[in-house]
Amino acid sequence: MYQLTFDTQAFIKKHWQQTPVVLTQAFEDFVDPIAADELAGLACEEEISSRIVVTEANQNQWNVIQGPFEDYDAYGETHWQLLVQAVNHWYPDSQPLVDAFRFLPDWRFDDLMVSFATPLGGVGPHIDNYDVFIIQGEGERRWKVGNKGDHKRRGGDENSPLVEDFEPIIGVVLKKGDVLYIPPGYPHCGETLSLAISYSIGFRAPSQQELLTQLADSLIDNNSGHQRFTSDSEALEPGIVSQEQQQGIMQLLAELATQPEKYQTMLGKLLSQNRFELDICEGEEPLDLEELQQVIEDGASILRIGGLKVLRLENDNISRLFINGEVFALENVTEAELVSFANTVNLDNELAATMFDNLAIAELLVELINQGLYYLAE
């Protein structure tokens, strides 16, 4: 169990998406949920996203090698860092650490990245477009965080996250249990002082590009969005688009945001998807309702696979859940039951038995288990 020591609601009001902050001993008596050799083992797997960043001797260049990795001897004892994405998808013992940050909504959560770093290892000064909590496990790392501003991209590459050196507003050595929170847009850089394991819990929101792309696809799929611009006056010059008409045309998009039937399904599907592959847990033979009822009566619990998002939309006019980019309509299910299903990661035996009393939820559980998105546990 991982319990944060700071006031989460005060943090949201004062720092969330506003200012970086060091949260000293945010976890008391912190225990690493994964060991370095176990992390190295995950990075051997083809389906798991991993990379090694090697810091060149002059520390002005960082070379990235994409995984999977079979051997680490070639990298030596210093100046490199292994990073493994979505560890919570593949290593269930890391889920309790993720759960500690569920004071923020699940739709924002991206993944748990875990890194193992040798002395003088790092990834260089960079800027992220998402919120991140950096949790220090074993070892120590020195972090610098700069202020927002017009930071030059390293090497003049505007597509690179790396930036030129910056003036720090935070300089700190993180020790086990310390947390550094960094909002989007703040340059930061970490340097390893001793063999260290760090955990990065990222939170991401969709961009305008992503929203418009998904909205356009949704309108096409549903043969919707046919309204065209009209006006009762025209410009006097034939070769001009008036400011009024520019705004009127773009207002067509703004109007879609006032029509939930146009965007809610798209939004629920988009926000419940994962960027990284899930560890699907399909059984050898599909279950039916009677078989699932029997195993629940025998004491089984029902658990979500790591990283799975189960979301509902406030003020949705349809009784449904959004799970892994799909829509699951649920008639004759109460709001309280939807809330419980969406908020509960692990259905213990008592809760599973209670939910199974509702036929619609029982059928949903069978479907999700057979899809490998939930699984049975003793």
Rank of each mutant, 00 (worst) to 15 (best):
Q214F: 13
A205T: 02
E77G: 00
G239Q: 02
V53Y: 07
Y75L: 03
E167D: 12
E56F: 14
A352P: 00
E158T: 08
V179L: 05
G190P: 02
A74Q: 04
E277K: 12
C44T: 11
A57T: 13
L39I: 02
G177H: 04
D165Q: 09
T78S: 15
H79Q: 10
E140K: 13
E46F: 12
T258A: 11
A352M: 06
P161C: 13
G306H: 01
D178Y: 11
E138R: 14
L39D: 00
P286L: 03
Q25I: 02
A57Q: 12
I302S: 14
G307W: 09
R142I: 07
N147G: 07
Y199S: 01
D279G: 09
D32T: 00
L83M: 10
D150Q: 10
F30S: 11
G146T: 02
N343G: 12
G239F: 09
L267E: 05
A329I: 08
D348T: 10
G155W: 15
F30W: 12
Q273R: 11
L292M: 01
S218G: 09
T354D: 12
L212R: 06
S50Y: 02
V98H: 14
Q264I: 00
A329C: 10
G137H: 01
P168K: 08
W90C: 03
L42W: 07
S231G: 08
H79D: 03
D32S: 08
L39F: 09
E277M: 07
L308R: 08
A100M: 09
C44R: 12
T19C: 04
I240C: 08
P125R: 01
V179G: 05
I169M: 14
G155A: 06
K144I: 07
E45G: 00
A57W: 13
A57C: 15
A196R: 09
A36G: 07
H79C: 10
L373W: 03
N324F: 07
P187A: 06
G202P: 01
P33W: 11
L376D: 05
A117I: 00
L311F: 06
A36E: 03
W107C: 14
E285L: 08
L162W: 08
D131E: 08
G124L: 01
L112T: 07
N349F: 00
E244I: 06
E255Q: 12
L39H: 02
D111N: 04
V172N: 01
G185K: 08
L104I: 07
E367S: 11
A36H: 11
F103I: 07
Y91N: 05
G190E: 08
E138C: 07
Q61W: 14
L97W: 14
V64Q: 12
V295R: 03
